[in-house]
C-alpha cells in the first residue's frame, strides 16, 4: 500500500478544480481506513514491546534500560504516529478549505445554488445552512443591526444604476423614490442601487456600465 498517497490526492483534487471538486467520499474513507490500519500495527507493536519490557530481566539495576519500548522498536512507532497525524492533517485541511469556500459563497449569493449541491457532502450542506443562520443572527445583534450586512460588497459609486433585466418573471419592484417599476425581460432601467442590488447579486439583473449604458 502506498502510504500517504490518498491524503495527497485529496488536496491535489482541491488544487485542480476551479471552485470545489465533488466531495470525494471514497478517498476520505480510504484515508480514514489508512489511519485505522496504522493504529492496528501500532497497537501490535506497543503490545509486543511491552511484553518484552515486562518479561525481560530486571536484575542489573545500574544498567537498566530507560522505561518505554525497546530502542529498536522506536523508529517504527514514531513513523506510524507521524503517518496518522499527517493523514489527519490532510483530512482537516481538505474540509477546512471546502468550508472556507462555502463561507465566501454565502456572502456572494446568500443562498446555496441548487446546481452546486451535488458537489457537497450532507454535512457540508448542513454547515452552510447553519452558518447562514449564524451569520445573519450576528448581523442582527449589536449597534449595526439596522443595516443589511450582505449589501454593498463593493464600495458604492452611484446612487442610481443602469440595469438590464435578464430573468423572466420578476414582476414589479418597489423603489424608494422612483415609484413601482415593472421588470420585463430585456428592458433597461435606471433605478436606485439599494433597491435592486439583491437582484443584481442573484443574477436577475445585469448592471450596465460605461459605453454600454447609452
Amino acid at each position: 500500500m502506498n502510504y500517504g498517497q490518498r491524503g495527497r490526492e485529496l488536496l491535489l483534487d482541491l488544487k485542480r478544480s476551479d471552485w470545489l471538486p465533488p466531495y470525494n467520499e471514497d478517498c476520505v474513507r480510504a484515508v480514514l481506513q489508512e489511519i485505522n490500519s496504522h493504529t492496528e500495527e501500532l497497537t501490535v507493536l506497543v503490545r509486543a514491546s511491552n511484553r518484552i519490557a515486562g518479561g525481560g530481566p530486571t536484575s542489573s539495576s545500574s544498567s537498566a534500560p530507560p522505561p518505554g519500548p525497546a530502542i529498536e522498536d522506536r523508529p517504527s512507532l514514531i513513523l506510524h504516529d507521524v503517518s496518522i497525524r499527517r493523514n489527519k492533517r490532510c483530512l482537516l485541511a481538505y474540509h477546512a478549505h471546502r468550508i472556507d469556500k462555502l463561507r465566501s459563497l454565502r456572502w456572494e449569493t446568500g443562498m446555496l445554488p441548487p446546481g452546486l449541491k451535488f458537489v457537497l457532502s450532507e454535512s457540508e450542506v448542513d454547515y452552510f445552512n447553519e452558518y447562514d443562520k449564524l451569520a445573519s443572527r450576528h448581523g442582527l445583534s449589536g449597534p449595526m443591526q439596522m443595516y443589511d450586512w450582505t449589501a454593498d460588497q463593493y464600495p458604492p459609486e452611484e446612487n442610481l444604476v443602469q440595469v438590464r433585466v435578464v430573468r423572466d418573471g420578476l414582476g414589479k419592484v418597489e423603489t424608494e423614490y422612483c415609484g413601482t417599476v415593472e421588470l420585463e425581460v430585456g428592458s433597461t432601467h435606471y433605478l436606485p442601487r439599494g433597491d435592486v442590488e439583491h437582484l443584481i447579486r442573484s443574477g436577475a439583473l445585469v448592471q450596465l456600465s460605461g459605453e454600454e449604458s447609452f
Partner: peptide
C-alpha cells in the same frame, strides 16, 4: 459569535473527520 462559530466548526470537523479516528489522543 466566536463561540458559536467555534461550536459549528467543531461539529463539522467531528462529523467528517474526528469521530472516525480511532483514539481520543488524535
Amino acid at each position: 459569535y466566536l463561540r458559536q462559530y467555534g461550536e459549528l466548526l467543531e461539529k463539522h470537523y467531528r462529523r467528517t473527520v474526528l469521530d472516525h479516528l480511532p483514539k481520543d489522543a488524535w
